[in-house]
Design a protein around this nucleic acid. Structure first.
Lengths: 338, 338
DNA sequence: TACTTTAAAGCGAACGTTCGCCCGAACGTT
DNA sequence: AACGTTCGGGCGAACGTTCGCTTTAAAGTA
């Protein structure tokens, strides 16, 4: 664990001042070809690596991007995290930045955590996820004018940079696919009204239904949590009716609901993909292994992560990004379930 | 985005030198009650937060822990990552440290990345995962004497700090459970021989079989990748024989294999949990939603993450941790599959 | 020859901390 | 009255950079 090689070490060896070494290695200043090459040779030989902290100290920047996420419960899985983190870290590193993960806390402590990271100079910007209406982080960061990008939208009247997946378009694709395969009796399992994401997806559904000339039965629009249990209960209710009067397709807003619905259909003796189509959202990796494999809407997570960081890099440099409100299209993955 | 409040700002306002402010806020030095309180009041009022980078600069430490992980493919999911990261970040933050995620690269670039982070002073230690025999990272870090903790074991002759889940014990629990429910014709789907983890788990299986007085049929120990496809194919072969001559239990080394095996059993018209018991490993969240729900071995991921960081904190402080080779017991979660 | 321009490299300063040494004043002791 | 001790706090230095100004010497121009 030998000591760090510094500019002074290189300078001593090369017989110049350490500032000159800095000039050479950064490409500034006037230095003769010979000394430049000598300095480079010595630096290489000694294995000089600039001390990141000293550099940040001098630059008055941390070159760090703060990120925290809502931890999932013990029996849940965040199948987004790996791809999102990997893509953000890659994009950040390519620009000389790093990602700084920090613990997620709720309530007033949350904004305090963001404040702490800003005031201690730990980060130059944030990527925030799991945003919803009236998100206190967004309000705080907007007020302070601190660079951040949200993965997800909030109140329409707020003006901030975001990247989001067009959930409405996803459900539009689902409806169009179902209609094109001759299914018109379509029910939907949605989320509670306080969910920005849920409302967006539901709106896309209703719009696509209208566009197809279908009037959705209000009793076939059920709101509840995005859980297996709700999916199972709601689908049981919907499918309890006789064949002619029940839906022949159930659309859900996430895969966990869809899996619950599959269980309900199975328990009622229905053949999924034939008697009833079921389509999920998220395309969780497990969807492909279900029986039958679940059709689902896949979100371009990696692209979203990259885009978030790309925009944030502009903001942190004080530039106005070319586009700072980005909507990415998801894609429907059709499998045997519908 | 106002400028950072520094010690000098507080000092000016309190009418003392900035070094005195530092003393007060760090609890060192002799300062009278009155000035101390005055300084504290001013600091609070001005919202002073120590500049982390300057502090690190002075301390010649980064208070960062490097961590990178193998990104999973597009249709896979890393159901460990969330819990592992969350627990490590929590443990690190409690000690004033942060986690620094960085991209995973294979081959010679990998050690170079570790080297770069060390030489640039970005990190004070590492947690490494996905270790296997002859892991070049372990060799490099051991040679440099740089603090690190591995989640997982490597060659037995290496001497380094690690935390691991006792996979052998997990399989022992599986065998004992199966035997206690009257199943003795047990097959196992294992991994290729170059997997340290796979060999450990298989060894536990064989040992438990022997302890139960059972001689495992060599043809019932199949090695292959931890994929759905291998699980399905291998199980098909095993279950193709007539009822009296085929296994009545299949143990796998991960859930994906188990799901493949479930599919094979299903396609052969067998009732899982009755005609054939199937038990997985990892207890992926989806296990509970399968049909029937999959029994599986659950690893104490959060405890492992916390323990890794705990040990690493000792190492980074130059202390010898009380225990630096930790083996955690997994637990079998019994569900309807066996 | 005297002066101006340019190239090459040195040097001081600063970023915000913390650490250790020093100094003055007040107090108590012989 | 002279001296030692303690308390309170100031001050210089350093961590490793980068930036910009200054200096020196050489080359070019009148």
């Amino acid at each position: 664990m030998q000591r760090q090689v510094t500019l002074k070490d290189v300078a001593l060896e090369a017989g110049v001042s350490y500032q000159t070494v800095s000039k050479v290695l950064n490409g500034h200043g006037q230095v003769s070809k010979e000394t430049e090459e000598r300095i480079r040779a010595v630096a290489r030989q000694l294995g000089y690596r600039p001390h990141a902290i000293a550099r940040n100290m001098r630059a008055q920047r941390s070159f760090m991007i703060g990120y925290s996420w809502v931890p999932t419960g013990p029996d849940q899985v965040n199948h987004i995290l790996d791809q999102l983190l990997t893509s953000m870290v890659e994009e950040a590193e390519a620009a000389g930045y790093h990602l700084l993960p920090f613990t997620y806390r709720d309530g007033s402590a949350q904004v305090e955590d963001y404040r702490q990271l800003i005031d201690s100079g730990m980060v130059d910007g944030f990527v925030i996820t799991s945003v919803n209406y009236d998100d206190p982080r967004i309000l705080y960061l907007m007020k302070r004018g601190f660079p951040f990008v949200a993965f997800g939208r909030s109140n329409p009247e707020y003006d901030f940079s975001y990247v989001d997946v067009d959930g409405a378009d996803g459900l539009r694709q689902v409806v169009e696919h179902l209609v094109s395969t001759g299914r018109q009796r379509i029910a939907i399992l949605a989320w509670p009204e306080d969910s920005r994401v849920g409302n967006e997806r539901l709106a896309g559904f209703l719009q696509a239904m209208a566009a197809a000339g279908l009037e959705p039965d209000p009793n076939w629009v059920l709101r509840g949590e995005g859980t297996f249990e709700f999916g199972c209960q709601a689908a049981s209710r919907l499918l309890a009716m006789p064949a002619g009067r029940r839906p022949n397709a159930i659309v859900t807003l996430n895969d966990t609901q869809a899996i619950g619905a599959m269980r309900a259909a199975h328990d009622l003796g229905l053949t999924i993909g034939k008697d009833i189509a079921i389509i999920g959202f998220d395309d969780a990796p497990m969807a492909q292994y279900l029986f039958p494999p679940l059709s689902s809407v896949r979100q371009p997570i990696r692209a979203a992560g990259r885009k978030c960081v790309e925009i944030l890099l502009h903001l942190m440099r004080g530039e106005k990004p070319a586009e700072d409100k980005v909507l990415l299209k998801p894609s429907l993955v059709v499998r045997a379930s519908g």
